[in-house]
Design a protein around this nucleic acid. Structure first.
Lengths: 200, 200
DNA sequence: GTATCTCACATACATTCCGTATGTCAATGA
DNA sequence: TCATTGACATACGGAATGTATGTGAGATAC
């Protein structure tokens, strides 16, 4: 079964890339770990970058699902938007996501916005922003620009948190700052109290 | 002269890392390009990472100087703060800074906040934010958190712009979104008109 | 039923590159 | 003048990637 082989290799890639980083992950070790050889890898993915791309696509899809799930909980559209951002920050706490999606991915494959999968998370944020603008909740601005910056802010927050000695404490600070920054987008007649520092 | 040798190697490293990326830059080529061998490199910098670190320190210092210069132009403290952020975005347009400081640097050396040089730009932003808080211009929040997110937003904006087909047009959008987000930090009784879309 | 063709993967090889260990040469100081 | 040290070059080993080739099983044609 070819699909099973691909799945095994992707799984092995995830753990190896996450643990050692892309550069230090040996394809020989990686494939041997699941009872295969580099032959299988080059046949299925072309080269080392191809495997990384496949791994990233898989993680990307998972992140999208989790972001949507987090966003669907909020009461107002604005809450949903903020919750998605917070969810992103929290996800990026995970070493796997950090190492693969935020560090090695961009360094090896280039700007994420050029990836085939188009970084699904970004599109989700963008659509949410567009919706908020249409509803008059957010000032009319370029939705993509906002989505980019919001994503970048969340990303950096995550990197910071992960490197911190007390991630939980830093997470609270980051989320607070995130809510405040996001509140700048609100149409001026809506100024909602932005600090609702609940959630773990 | 030992200082001259170091300077030559750092210079060669800058161009090689910027052009090919850290991983693909060959130390043999790089050193031969300035009439030296790998021996000089390992003697002066320990290993390949050491050279990257030295290159990053140099660029970091330059970026700091340019940010300060940009910030010193503004009339109000708030303007200076925003101008520094915009300057950062504009700097990150340069391929050298992008590739080395924003992509390979973090991937190879880990989180920038742990670098010896402590990413001078970040500290500058942080101090500026602290000052703004003390003066009551910005709401009381964690200065480091804000600096981090602002930096991340600017960084991502830069990556986006650089990959765009029309960087100039995208730059304007990004700066607009940046100003809007930043305005969220303002104490509510100060709400300044945030969109002053001047500057090319 | 067999011969062939293709697919999925394994094996073997060449190349490249890093890091280290060792060698050389000039300058310095005793 | 001889020993020592620093700055750099040279030589070597190990590892990893990519490619070229081999192999065996299943499908298909006849």
């Amino acid at each position: 079964m070819v699909e099973e082989t691909r799945a095994k290799l992707i799984s092995a890639g995830r753990t190896a890339f996450a643990a050692k980083g892309y550069a230090a992950a040996s394809m020989d070790e990686l494939t041997a770990g699941v009872g295969l050889t580099r032959g299988a890898l080059y046949h299925n993915f072309g080269d080392k970058k191809g495997l990384l791309q496949a791994v990233i696509d898989q993680i990307d899809a998972e992140m999208l699902a989790r972001m949507r799930a987090a966003g669907s909980q909020g009461q107002t559209p604005w809450e949903r938007f903020v919750d998605e951002g917070v969810a992103f920050i929290e996800m990026a706490l995970e070493p796997e996501i950090q190492r693969i999606m935020l560090l090695d991915g961009p360094a090896v494959l280039g700007d994420p916005s050029r990836w085939p999968n188009q970084t699904a998370c970004l599109r989700t944020t963008m659509r949410t922003v567009e919706q908020l603008i249409n509803e008059g909740i957010v000032k009319p601005v370029d939705a993509e620009a906002v989505a980019r910056l919001i994503n970048g802010a969340a990303l950096n927050a995550a990197l910071w948190i992960a490197a911190a000695d007390e991630p939980r404490a830093v997470l609270k600070k980051a989320v607070g700052a995130f809510r405040l920054l996001a509140s700048g987008l609100l149409a001026s007649d809506r100024q909602v109290g932005p600090t609702r520092s609940g959630r773990s």
